[in-house]
Every structure is written in structure tokens, then in C-alpha cells.
Design a protein around this nucleic acid. Structure first.
Lengths: 154, 154
DNA sequence: AGAAACTTTATAGTAGCTTTAAGGTCAAGC
DNA sequence: GCTTGACCTTAAAGCTACTATAAAGTTTCT
């Protein structure tokens, strides 16, 4: 049977660092597991499935708070799932908004880039001048769209 | 003349918190300014312009490292600006990649959402089941697109 | 003179981990 | 029996780009 795992087994199987598993436990997303005599964590099928659920949610870029919310709903199987829908709809809304912001940003960046097609000295560089004089993003600016994700440049 | 500012003046004019200005100084993006007798920071036109440059870059969602790089290039006016172009092109690439990832993510989320159009109990909810069994984002997954930006939900 | 409004530094908190340190456990090999 | 190495343990610091708080000093207004 393969339904008893130590933390490293679980980590390898689900391709997640062991520290992250401990972190999820610390954050209350995973329950405190049983321990061996030597104080090693022991996980079963239920925990493996719960962690899979969490990882899928993270792959969909939900926050730990959103995931906590879904896990609570999952833990009460009798409830209606209208609330599940609303968590997901809210998240879809976040993503849509983010895409909109990034598209705006991309337009601005390409506009800026077009100011220096012919290389000159940086003193006269249209890009550097553009960055120094560009209208301030007082309102309607890019407003921190979050381009630089951890795994984005792999 | 309005070319001598204390930190609060500068902050108000450029709509940035004073702490952020000190932080940029701490991070070496702004030089250590002159001080009054009472040890207050004093800024002139050059610093104001430099801060404006930084804020525009941030509005375009560049990292402080990218900005540091551009500032260095800006500080050596005789250099060619091919490198400016390449910093900007790299950043445009980051944004494009992020948009692509988020579009993928949006597709997955909508697919998931479609599993529960008719509300049932959460035990049978297609969404929760989907999240538990969805193919793991082993490769080609959403890979942390960063949806939840600081100012995104304002 | 005294209060309000500004400034100073230092420190901690945010999200979601990753990294490091300093050590304990366990199976295999000599 | 003892060591080596792979695994595990906890706690704490580091990452980005700030934001918030505390405790104190300075300047300005009345």
C-alpha cells in the first residue's frame, strides 16, 4: 500500500518542497499530522488529497485566504455550493482586472520603446527622456500590476 | 523659486509617501541629500527629477533592480543607449509573458467554473471535485502569475 | 510659551514562500 | 559497534517594495 507517506515522499510525489508543506501546516491549511516515534510527520491519503487540492488552487493563483475559504466549504459537505461559486467568481474577476491592467501597461511600454528605434547616446535617448517627463500615473496609471512573479522567468 | 524641498513637500508634489522616498534613498536609488541645521533632508530640482524618473518606472511596474540599472545608464550620458533598449525590451517581455500566463489561467478558471452552473451541495460540487483532481500543473501550468497586486482592487 | 505639524531613526509587519542554522533519527556498510 | 549519509526536526532570517508604528527631535503658528 502506498497510503502512508513521510514528508519527503509526499513532497517528491506532488513536486513541492517539504518546507512548503510545513508552512501550509503552520498556516492551518493542512491539519497537524500524526507522528512516528522519532517525531517524523506521517501523512495518509486524506492529507495527500488535501494538499493536492491546495496546490491546484495555488496553480490557479488563489491566495492562501481564498484557499482557506474553499477548504472550509469543502469540510462541510452538506452546505450548498453557491459560496464556492462566489469565491471562484471573485477570483476570476481579480484575474480579469489584472489582465486589463497589464494590457494597458504593455501599450505604454511599447509607446515608450518606440521613442528610441535609432540608437543614440543615452544623453539624447528618447526613452530616458520619456521616463523623466512621462505624465505621472496620477490616475488611470498602471497601478502596480505585479509583473515579476517568482516562477515567471524560469 | 521652488527648487528647494523638504521631504514632505516633495512627497506631496509627487504624490508618494515620505517613507517611500527614504526607502529609495536607503536602497541607493536616490543619493543622500543635503541636510538643514536641524538634520532635515533638503532636495533640489535634480533630486526631484530623479524621483520622478523612478516613479514613472515604477508606474510601468519595473523592479527596483531594473530601475537601478536604468539610472546607472542615465548617469553616464556619453554611453550608447542600446542597453536602455535592452532593459526595456526585457521588461516588455516580462509583461507579455505574464499576460500570456494570466490568459491561460483565465481559461482554466472559466472551465472550472462551468462545472457548477446548477447549485448543488458542496459534497457534489463539480468545482471542488475539479480542484481535487485537476491535472497537476507539473509543466505548462499557471506558474504563479501574481494576480493579487497591492493596488489592483482599489 | 505651548501646541500643531513636521521631521528624524529604528523596527516590525505584509504574502508566500526559500534559505540557513543547528541539531535529531534511521538504514546501510565496515 | 560505529560511522556515514540521507532524511527529518524547529526556529529564525531573507526575499520585494513597501507600509505602519514608536519614540523622539525641530519648526512654525498663535
Amino acid at each position: 500500500m502506498t497510503n502512508r507517506y513521510r514528508i519527503g515522499d509526499l513532497a517528491t510525489r506532488l513536486a513541492v518542497p517539504t518546507q512548503t508543506i510545513r508552512y501550509y501546516e503552520h498556516e492551518g491549511l493542512l491539519p497537524k499530522p500524526a507522528r512516528t516515534e522519532g517525531n517524523y510527520r506521517v501523512y495518509g491519503i486524506a492529507e495527500r488529497e488535501r494538499l493536492t487540492f491546495i496546490l491546484h488552487c495555488r496553480a490557479l493563483d488563489m491566495t492562501l485566504d481564498e484557499i482557506r475559504h474553499l477548504l472550509r466549504l469543502r469540510d462541510v459537505p452538506g452546505q450548498g455550493c453557491a459560496e464556492v461559486n462566489s469565491v471562484l467568481d471573485a477570483h476570476i474577476g481579480h484575474v480579469a482586472e489584472r489582465i486589463r491592467l497589464l494590457n494597458d501597461l504593455q501599450l505604454q511600454l511599447k509607446d515608450l520603446r518606440a521613442r528610441c528605434e535609432s540608437p543614440s547616446t543615452s544623453k539624447d535617448c528618447g526613452i530616458l527622456q520619456g521616463l523623466a517627463s512621462f505624465p505621472t500615473a496620477q490616475d488611470g496609471g498602471a497601478s502596480r500590476a505585479g509583473v515579476h512573479g517568482r516562477r515567471a522567468q524560469e
